[in-house]
Design a protein around this nucleic acid. Sequence first.
RNA 1: GCCCAGGUGGCGGAAUCGGUAGACGCGUUGGUCUCAAACACCAAUGGGGUCACACCCGUGCCGGUUCGACUCCGGCCCUGGGUACCA
Length: 930
Amino acid sequence: MEYNHREIEKKWQQFWEDNQTYRTDIDHNKPKYYVLDMFPYPSGAGLHVGHPLGYIASDIISRYKRLKGFNVLHPMGFDSFGLPAEQYAIQTGQHPAITTEQNISTFISQMKNIGFSYDWSREVRTSDPNYYKWTQWIFMQLFNHYYDKDADKALPIAHLVTQFEKGGSAAANAVCDEETPDFTAEDWNAMNEKEQQILLLKYRFTFPEESYVNWCPGLGTVLSNDEVKDGVSERGGFPVERKLMKQWAMRITAYADRLLTGLDTIDWPEPLKEQQRNWIGKSVGASVKFKVASENKEGLNIEVFTTRVDTIYGVSFMVLAPEHEWALELTTPEQKEAVETYIKWAASRSEVDRMAEKKVTGVFTGSYCTNPLSDEKVPIFLADYVLAGYGTGAVMGVPSGDQRDWNFATNFGLPIIPILDSQKDIDQQADNTKEGTYINSGIINGMTYKEATDTLIGWLEERKLGKGKVQYRLRNAVFSRQRYWGEPVPVYFKDDVPYLIDESELPLELPKIDKYLPTETGEPPLGRAEGWKYKNEYEYELSTMPGWAGSSWYWYRYMDPQNNDAFASKKAINYWQRVDFYLGGSEHATGHLLYSRFWNKFLKDLGLVPHEEFAAKLLNQGMIQGRSNFVYRLKSSESGHPVFVSYGLKDQYETTKLHVDVNIVDNDILDVAAFKNWREDFINAEFILEDGKYVCGWEVEKMSKSKFNVVNPDNIVEKYGADTLRMYEMFLGPLTDAKPWNMNGISGTFNFLRKFWRLFYEDQSGKQKWSDAEPTAEELKVLHRTIKRVEEDIERLSFNTVVSTFMIAVNDLSDLKCHKKAILQDMLILLAPYAPHITEELWVALGNEAGTLSLASFPVFNPKYLEESAFEYPIQINGKVRANIPFPVDMSKEDIEQGVLANETVQKWLEGKAPKKVVVVPKRIVNVVL
RNA sequence: GCCCAGGUGGCGGAAUCGGUAGACGCGUUGGUCUCAAACACCAAUGGGGUCACACCCGUGCCGGUUCGACUCCGGCCCUGGGUACCA
């Protein structure tokens, strides 16, 4: 009986579905383990071979943990709101829900084909009203809370209001907008409802604000920075412009410090954590006020942020961003024209242009300001190396200590003042040292870095001219999209002030609209919904939530997906706690993974979830790149038929390189017959072969239809089976490495499974081979060596070496002609997580009950089977292996040394002399040094 | 520019703590079986060298530490990913 993967895999997939084999429920008799995949966006293109890479790994972990006695939660769902479905709806008029539904069915059937052990009864979809009800509910909690710095957590807005009533803004210590005014209790109590509500928006975690966004008129929507590439939208390639719009924002900055410190508590990849740290960008320094020294401008103070307040005596100029609000106000009439030209020029340049620019640019405003320490007057410039969006948009120029300031000063002929006695060659370049003691520095002369910094901050704070300050790069997240296919924001407007709808009205469902485009007046698509008003009276918010809203909490919904009273019950959350193992791509490092941590911390503050961090361990699988194949067509053909030259001979001819469908190429050898039928104009193609074969060229490129390098997993499953696909994707290389999808070599894993099958069945006759005979010591040694390696390797997530361990074991057992049930049964359990179908089939063949393989216990490694009486020592002479000599494992170092020196080969190298030294490492190596 | 990851046969990769570099698989070559093929099986396969051994060279480059370095240290080159002229 031959291994028939088509029959076997269909049969067991049906069995698992019929018997709900992987359905999971709360079970207090077992420890829990929660394995989560980043859920996919169900695109119309279906699953490609990059998706399963991570899913296969997480499925192996899940199945392995089940065998290890854990109650494993392993769910799958869909991040089903998003732009592509909406774009399709705009083109075709079809409701995005319909497209999404179709795409999801394709995804599910493709995933079921690969034999994943998901508990499909827990599937969630972010676009399902029963799901987004809770996304909206969390939004409402965010609206109703603020960050209290004393409590160091989120507290209800009502608590803040109480503080305002009693003691005004001074009574509260809350995170709020930069420009929030101070007010007394009397002020507060005298305000009307509207005034109070507007003020409270400056404290709420989510709030509307006017902000610059990437507006894409072509898509009628706002895009995130990473959806914009080179000034055009990533999807569709439409132009994108900066536009001021009213947007909902999320006060993620309130959690900046906790997002930073939390990273130290989780087992996530270090590069990813580093990326988040840089994104949050904490800088410790000071803010300092420089008084404007020009006439009529006495009241103005320019505030700068610096991480090196100790260099303040080295300031020889001041630079503002061209967008700084006082840029024109500080400009003198003589400089007006130059400044206006510069501002206009700076505004016309994209961020990419600005970054690529190496030349120093800037313009003098004509005004001066006074250094509060030295009382020196320094000129104020505008320059686009200062960014409006970071810090205060103003920088003090210290050319001796900062290279960009040095470049600027050199270009504009400004003085470069040395401030530390250890600074070197500052006429050549800046020296940012903190060593030595200060010179030319007034009150800090002779001090060291630490003393100087403390002294200066104390001095500034005393005079209210500055203060120690922590600055973050992290900005509040924009939370609106001017599009249809997203969660409606559960807010209505009364007297231009936003209010939450009543909780009983959730979910606020998407209304039906005629077209999925912005209205004629430029409002978002929801503006088209007729009669869509809260209590038939108030305007709803017309923008929808961004893609990351629904994905920032979904792992809790899987715990209790049908719950109508809460996003998940206390009982379910208490049992499942949090994600133990999260697997997905590193491209989500600063988006999804940062927002999710933010929402989780918020939910934790509200006492709704038990952990500060939602995922204890995270692994990034590498990206699967495309691997294209090429054929080479002669530029001219005598016969009139197209002629193709094999790769190795192409340099002898004039040829044109053409992409060829990778699905008709095997190991870079073209299937010539299939190629003729591939395209009509190739039906009469002729070939110049090498060694009777047509060899294709190849390159690593992005996977795309136009490059004919897209590989659909369904085709591989059909040809080789899901078990082969699963093992091959793992065998390809380390999971975390980016790698091109390459079909060369898949036959190796397919052959392995067939060889495994032949341990059980005779090839031709189909006769059963297994017996109840007692295994030999040699056979037990193979088994236990395999158990040990398989377990060790999966624990360190080295999936590719597990596959090779299985290959070695099967090769060894074949060589030993071992067909003993006692060995094979354990091999089946070991292999089950990787190749679940073939193992189920053989498990039943051996006489076990169907479906019980998932409930089996992982074999226990017993070191006694690996014990050896002798070890074959590699013998090195001066570090080079010259001989191998076996010695008993318990032999003393001295005896081994004697044995080695007596050896013929060693004698030859010694040439009768005594060795300088002999190093004996027991059970490792011997090195004789001459 | 900065940050991160990486560089090992014809190819994908292995070497977990500083201890025999190249496991396992693909490919290639030769052979067995077959009318032939497919499958399977056997053998060889880093480079040089030899009838065969011996021996020499070899993990991006240069240097160092060590009895011993793919592994550790210093400097450099290249590739991929990220990014912020962040004061």
